[in-house]
Design a protein around this nucleic acid. Structure first.
Length: 813
DNA sequence: ACTTTCTCA
DNA sequence: ATCGTGAGAAAGT
């Protein structure tokens, strides 16, 4: 890192280097701030600096607005929010979860109640290594070249009965090349006891750059830790069967093969795993055991900034509210629900509960593709245009590689003052060639140039982006366009436009076996397997629309889509989402009737004691309550109070009190009382009374930490309906949860836009007219996207060797 | 609904 | 000093 700047100021250069060294040694990432500050100093007065100032001011303004809002929040509203925050959350949460009923249910229960069988692992490795990872989880998710998540749960199971030989790895000391370091360590490892290792700085005597200061101690510790556990025999190492051992093994193998070190995190979900992997950064690992207490312990004092998705700005905003750690986040959840959007709040809550994804999401489709370039000032119009043209043709090339065409072209301009502007234009038909794109981009650019005509545009960056890809469009427009797309498959291939049907020769361009006769779902599925090579088995019939055993890759969106498209054909073979019985070829009306029956039946099964919910009014309808029926809800809510207040709000004010005080406020959404009773809090925080006490608008908070005690008894309580189950058979229990979860899904779907047919009659008369079809209504407000503030699963064209720098650099410098 | 800006990684 | 790429959220229109 000696790339000293052409900075004339020596001091700054020095500081800079020190700062960076800090970072390199694996200190807290927060030192970055320090570095930034120093850099800022150095660049004071520059345009960059000025712009940074401006941005900072904007953020401050945002914060100010937020605080202003906060000051107007009445205690009442806060109380209300507190009440609702839990129930809303559950309703949503379980709805989302239910996207994959079978998969989740099996995890949900053990994970939340007893043990989590689920380990995800995060690693940093470089490219060639990645193959190693496949041994442990063939479906591992590579986020970038040097980051991947693995779910090693299954692998661990298998490994339990492996003989030692299968877990033995030989130390590779053959090549005396550059990887002295790893070799030195490993070769000395055999036979070393702890004492010996502790005096092992000599291990590094042959790696000169490392010797400067005490630095070697850090790596040596890491290695020491690493080698203590595995049984070491001469030139081979045997790794155990625990998760930690497995991860050590992986890291060992990687280091052997590539001489790159890697850090890893082991945790029950990806979010935690990511944070964990940060913990022992350069070359180590960290595990959060798969039980809730461990998770909560870890989360408790975790600074929010450590969490992926919480960046500089969010950190600052939350800090203004006195939120530093994840505990703070949880405590202020009511306030947050009022100040932030639902999505943000939702993700905050997830974080504060230590929740995260437990599955390896497959990469979604690409949403846009862009190219941009930074240069020293360009202001001449012609140059700008030709630059633009160049960008467009580069983009067109990339586009072609993936065979994409899009409708929206966006240009991005950054002037020499670092101000960024984007301008977009959407056209009717998809475009993809350089000329087409340029034609659009040129116009956009022209407008900007003309806009401040007397003055030239003085740019330092220009970019072109294309989005609105065709497949995405199909999705948006739902079945009609999808159908037409499928039907029109032939004439896509037939530029002439003659719709004479094609034979199956066209299959190069089409998913295999998509004939008109098949249901959309079948088509869709074969299309998916075709596209993603998921090992979907294409079964002859369309029966698993809702089956529990569906491969774990259906998002909620897709479920929805399935729901909608289920009806594209008038009648088809359908499996009831509730009872999972095949319904044969029934038409929609009949299906709806059946589902209704199922629903009310399971409701009774599920909640024999939920007196408050009138039988006729199946839970589905409760979601639809608007302000008019508001009262009803409230009373329902109150009906529940006694049982809830004991558990959740044990001390302090009674629920009734809260209710009446909050009663007049109107909330944007009302959820079923069923949900409000629901359970996560009780699962996670047996007595969360402290929060209530400490929390009124001006309370200082800080008085409490998360409670992590857990219901001690082993009885199975459904986390969805929150009722104790008679059975102790986990399978039975799981299927119960499945059912409950599915109710959640239906509810979710209905909440988005109601399907009256599926409602109970009583509710129908009020809300909508006659038989709206699921597919029509459901996608109207398909607003909810993936939960979380940010997700980063893009398959970037370029991959930055970000972290490998640590290792490579430190090794070979 | 489409654009634009912000935020994050 | 990032830079480049891509994505989601939210605000603006």
């Amino acid at each position: 890192m000696d790339s000293t700047k052409e900075n004339n100021n020596d001091k700054d250069g020095l500081l800079l280097r020190m700062g960076l060294n800090d970072n390199k040694a694996g200190m807290d990432g927060l030192d970055k701030e320090k570095i930034n500050k120093i850099i800022m100093e150095a660049t004071k007065g520059s345009r960059f600096y000025e712009n940074e100032l401006k941005k900072e001011k904007q953020v401050n303004q945002r914060i100010e607005n937020m605080m202003q809002q906060k000051s107007q929040i009445t205690t009442q509203r806060l109380w209300k929010a507190q009440l609702q925050s839990t129930s809303n959350y559950h309703a949503r949460r379980f709805g989302v979860r239910a996207a994959m009923p079978g998969f989740i249910a099996k995890r949900l229960c053990p994970q939340l109640t007893i043990v989590s069988p689920n380990f995800d692992k995060y690693r940093e490795v470089s490219k060639e290594v990645m193959e190693i990872l496949a041994d442990y989880d063939p479906n591992f998710m590579a986020v970038s070249l040097d980051e991947a998540y693995l779910n090693i749960t299954k692998y661990l199971e298998e490994r339990q009965n492996w003989p030692e030989d299968k877990r033995r790895y030989f130390v590779n000391r053959g090549n005396t090349t550059e990887n002295e370091k790893s070799e030195a360590v490993i070769s000395k490892a055999p036979g070393l006891n702890e004492a010996a290792v502790s005096i092992s700085p000599l291990l590094f005597e042959d790696s000169p750059p490392q010797l400067q200061q005490q630095e070697p101690e850090i790596p040596s510790q890491a290695h020491f830790e690493e080698q203590r556990d595995p049984q070491v025999l001469q030139n081979s190492v045997i790794f155990g069967t625990s998760a930690e051992e497995v991860v050590k093994e992986i890291r060992f193998r990687i280091e052997q093969k590539t001489s790159l070190t890697a850090s890893a995190g082991i945790a029950p979900n990806t979010m935690l795993a990511k944070v964990c992997s940060d913990k022992n950064k350069p070359n180590g690992q960290y595990q959060i055991p798969p039980n809730r207490e461990a998770v909560m312990d870890f989360i408790k004092d975790l600074p929010i900034r450590k969490v992926p998705g919480i960046g500089k700005v969010t950190e600052k905003m939350l800090k203004a509210l006195g939120i530093i750690t994840c505990s703070d986040l949880y405590q202020k959840r009511a306030l947050l629900s009022l100040l932030f959007s639902e999505t943000s709040w939702h993700s905050f809550l997830h974080i504060s509960l230590g929740l995260g994804s437990t599955q390896m999401e497959r990469d979604g489709e690409r949403k846009s593709m862009s190219i941009e370039r930074t240069f020293s000032e360009i202001s001449k119009a012609e140059e700008l245009y030709s630059l633009c043209q160049e960008l467009c043709s580069d983009l067109a090339q990339d586009l072609q590689k993936e065979g994409l065409k899009g409708k929206t072209v966006t240009i991005k301009l950054k002037n020499v003052n670092f101000e960024v502007k984007t301008r977009a234009s959407t056209v009717a038909a998809v475009v993809s060639t350089a000329e087409e794109i340029f034609a659009i981009a040129k116009e956009l650019l022209k407008v900007e140039i003309d806009a401040d005509y007397p003055r030239p545009l003085r740019l330092r960056l220009m970019g072109v982006r294309i989005s609105g890809f065709s497949n995405e469009e199909d999705r948006k427009h739902g079945q009609r366009s999808i159908i037409s797309f499928l039907k029109a498959g032939s004439h896509v291939l037939d530029p002439v436009g003659s719709v004479v049907d094609k034979n199956d020769q066209d299959q190069v361009m089409k998913p295999p076996e998509t004939s008109h006769k098949e249901s959309f779902f079948t088509k869709k599925r074969s299309e998916m397997s075709w596209n993603h090579q998921d090992n979907f088995k294409c079964e002859p019939e369309t029966k698993q629309s809702f089956q529990v055993s569906q491969p774990p890759s259906l998002s909620k969106e897709e479920m929805k889509e399935n729901l909608e498209t289920e009806n594209t054909d008038d009648c088809q073979v359908i499996t009831c989402p509730i009872c999972f019985k095949e319904q044969g070829r029934i038409c929609l009306e009949a299906l709806n009737r059946h589902v209704d029956e199922c629903l009310s039946r399971t409701l009774v099964d599920c909640d024999p004691k939920t007196v408050a919910v009138p039988q006729s009014q199946s839970f589905c309808s409760e979601v639809n309550l608007d302000l008019k029926t508001h009262k009803t809800t409230d009373s329902l809510l109150i009906d529940f109070v006694p049982s809830v207040s004991v558990d959740v709000f044990s001390k302090g004010k009674s629920m009734e009190d809260l209710n009446t005080r909050a009663g007049d406020e109107q909330s944007p959404k009302q959820y079923s009382s069923l949900w409000s009773k629901s359970s996560l809090d009780e699962y996670f925080y047996q007595n969360s009374s402290q929060e209530n006490e400490g929390y009124d608008a001006k309370s200082s908070g800080g008085q409490t930490t998360l409670q992590t005690s857990f219901p001690r008894d082993e009885t199975l309580v459904c986390p969805v309906c929150n009722l104790q189950q008679k059975t102790s058979d986990l399978m039975l229990f799981n299927s119960h949860v499945d059912i409950c979860l599915n109710k959640g899904l239906i509810q979710e779907l209905k909440k988005d836009k109601v399907n009256p047919v599926m409602n109970c009659p009583a509710e129908n008369s009020k809300s909508t007219g006659s038989s709206g079809k699921i597919q029509k209504t459901v996608n109207v407000t398909a607003k909810t996207k993936r939960p979380g503030l940010m997700t980063q699963n893009s398959t970037s064209k370029k991959i930055k060797p970000n972290n490998s720098k640590y290792t490579i650099d430190s090794f070979f410098k």
